[in-house]
Computed example of a mutant assay.
Amino acid sequence: MARSLGRIFRGFQSLCSVPFMKTELSHPCSSMFRTSLRTMAVLPSFFSFKPRDFSLPNSSWGEEMMQLYKYYDSQCEVKTDGEEGQGGQWKRLPSYNRSLKYATGGVYLSKIIQSKARLFTRNVRNPGAAFEYVLFMRKDEQKCVCILQAGHLLEGPPGHVHGGAIATMIDTVTGTHASLLCAPVVTANLSIDYRSPIPLGSTVLIESTVDKREGRKTFISCKVTSTDGSKLHTEATALFVSISVSHLLRG
């Protein structure tokens, strides 16, 4: 579909380059035609099938967030075209929802909206206002770590992060971790103990570890700490159950 729209737009561009068309475009009705051309110029990018990665650095990231990102990113495997990852212990996970191909409505609908898709935790236009985070996974130790910077829209107690926002991130991190082992999965149980509040604007680490796997069940433990590990903010355990793609398609 995107290719067809692109061809149509290029056709309009070629047509407008013809001398007699330049004359016709001086007519008052040509403003509507020019508006249509501008709309067509936007459509190909709208229907792009490559989603935007929201886990990359942006201007809202603080110094601590950037330092931790660089630390883990420096230990990631390096990939070249047509080759497997070379070296490195960690792998950065992109922050967009790649499961839309299973969405109710079919594969064609999912492709159309894929370009705008993301994990709902990052669904805020203003960078830094809510969830700024990036995930890294280490397969050999079955660990996942998330660097989180909490924005002002996540306020619960005055000056601190809402408990529901913390639960959202824990479910996102542990669920992403489990889905990489046996996708797709659903959350069956999430148990959280809040130890100390997280100040708004601060950066914390969310560490997820697989405890055991039993058939379709994956048991994961998680903790939220200060970046130096000196303060424990939250502890949690989660149970995920793998399901079939046909189960998702039934809606």
Rank of each mutant, 00 (worst) to 15 (best):
T176P: 04
T174M: 07
G215W: 00
H160M: 09
I198E: 02
T172S: 11
T187C: 08
A165K: 06
E207V: 08
H160A: 13
A167D: 10
S221F: 01
P157H: 09
A178R: 03
T225D: 14
K212P: 00
S196H: 13
L180S: 08
I170H: 02
D193S: 11
S246Y: 04
S230Q: 12
H162T: 09
S242W: 00
P158K: 08
T234S: 12
K223Q: 15
C182I: 01
F219P: 02
C222R: 04
V173L: 08
I206T: 11
C182F: 05
A178L: 03
G163N: 11
E214T: 01
I206K: 03
P157S: 13
H247T: 15
D228N: 14
S244L: 13
T234A: 11
S244N: 10
G164F: 06
I170M: 11
D171Q: 10
T168R: 09
H177G: 00
F240S: 01
S191H: 13
L200C: 07
S191V: 15
F240R: 00
S230H: 08
G164V: 09
V173D: 05
D193E: 14
S230G: 03
N189C: 12
P184G: 07
T209E: 15
G164K: 06
L239D: 01
P158M: 12
V245S: 08
L200F: 05
D171W: 10
E155C: 08
P199E: 04
K212L: 03
G163D: 11
G159H: 10
T218E: 03
T172N: 11
L200G: 04
S226N: 06
K212V: 01
I166H: 01
H162Y: 11
S230D: 09
E207F: 04
F219L: 10
I198F: 03
G159N: 08
A236K: 06
A167H: 05
A167R: 03
T187M: 07
D193H: 08
A236E: 06
N189I: 02
G175N: 10
T174L: 04
L181E: 06
E207Y: 07
T187P: 02
R216K: 15
H162K: 07
T218I: 12
S191Q: 11
M169Q: 10
V186P: 00
P158C: 12
Y194P: 04
S221W: 00
C182A: 14
T209P: 01
K231A: 13
R216I: 01
K223M: 11
V245K: 13
V185L: 02
G229P: 05
I166W: 05
G159S: 10
T218V: 10
I192G: 05
S202P: 09
H247E: 15
S221Y: 00
T187H: 06
P197I: 05
L232C: 12
V245T: 13
I206Q: 04
L239K: 04
S246K: 10
H162P: 02
